[in-house]
Design a protein around this nucleic acid. Structure first.
Lengths: 191, 191
DNA sequence: ATGTGCATGTAAATTGTTACATGATTCA
DNA sequence: TGAATCATGTAACAATTTACATGCACAT
């Protein structure tokens, strides 16, 4: 029934949003429970995406209703618990989403840069301090990313190349920010 | 009355949040009306901060109630209109905020990087296309930022150095992303 | 026994956006 | 005179987070 499946496709598109696909992608990579999904996000994509527990459980329900993941009860004692695996349909729908040409806005929200933008209102010394805080923040981030670089290299050897790419992207972005900070620190100290 | 002013200080901190200070900062730089503030944000800090009109007008009211800006009615015909200027207290409070050591999380939300992270689920050719989309997006952004670079240079000559810094930061960030994309495009085409 | 990490889930609050209603001004 | 832009403001909606309630498993 081509009509029915076309309708179903449309329904899916309107029912699922980006956070749902993030959850689906993490289930595909082997995260079985809501908790594991949360931790996988923290360990891998938190540099450019976050998700809270309160979003994950409803999301898993939607994905299961849409037939994209399959859940099995696996209680711990008297406490209910549910683990998930991706379905064939889920794999297909994930690829469809990845292939979908849609606007992918790069949304940055950074109070540090906002403060720097307004820093002409500060004394030179205070502005330099702020600049150094922003630099230090990026340096920390680079350190944190370098700490998980080995895991990325390991994943690459297993055939998953792209997690390492996004990791390297994070490192490159913050190293670029550090360079600009240092250039301006020198410039401001000279001038 | 030291007690009263201390209490007042605390009130300010709990009443005003980051978007309010962004509005205050833009008023300091000469944006007089809600509309001008909206446009100033679009033209200058939209790379790392956005704000919607629906936030600006209530924000201006809060700032005026706190005595940080002064509003004057300047109607256009029968349509009410209000323009603002920063007060002495506003200047001080802005500097206090800029100086305040507080967590300044670098929050990036980028579906492009999320898709890249999961791109091992794609065929090589489709993944390369996605990579190129992300590269092109950054290239566009660099172009847009370069288009306003002249304004930043002009501001620098007027004594406002930091707007140009944040502009250069945006350019550097996206150039770094482009480089990583290009490196991986070569790598994937080889391998 | 007790604290820490694993784990699930919901309700309330917060935050921010979109859509809408309205009207003035300017330029073609 | 009609379209585009300037301009103000609110109400409804959507998205996301925080706080809370609950309890198992394991190591010390």
């Amino acid at each position: 029934m081509p009509l029915a499946s076309a309708t179903r496709g449309l329904e899916l598109e309107s029912e699922l949003d980006a956070p749902d696909y993030v959850v689906l992608g993490m289930v595909r990579l082997g995260a079985r429970s809501g908790y594991e999904i949360k931790r996988a996000v923290e360990l891998s994509i938190r540099f450019f995406w976050t998700i809270s527990q309160a979003q994950i459980y409803p999301s898993l329900k939607r994905l299961e209703q849409a037939g994209l993941v399959r859940g099995h009860p696996e209680p711990r004692g008297r406490r209910p618990r549910r683990v998930y695996e991706i379905t064939e349909a889920g794999e297909l729908e994930l690829v469809r989403w990845l292939d979908r040409r849609e606007p992918m806005p790069f949304e940055l929200r950074d109070l540090g840069l906002v403060k720097l933008f307004f820093a002409d209102a500060l004394q030179r010394g205070e502005a330099l301090e702020l600049l150094d805080t922003v630099r230090a923040r990026s340096a920390e981030r680079v350190g944190a990313l370098r700490d998980i670089e080995a895991a990325g290299v390991a994943a690459e050897r297993q055939g998953d190349l792209f997690p390492l790419l996004t990791l390297r992207m994070g490192i490159a972005v913050h190293e670029a920010m550090i360079e600009v900070c240092e250039r301006y620190e020198r410039k401001l100290k000279r001038g």
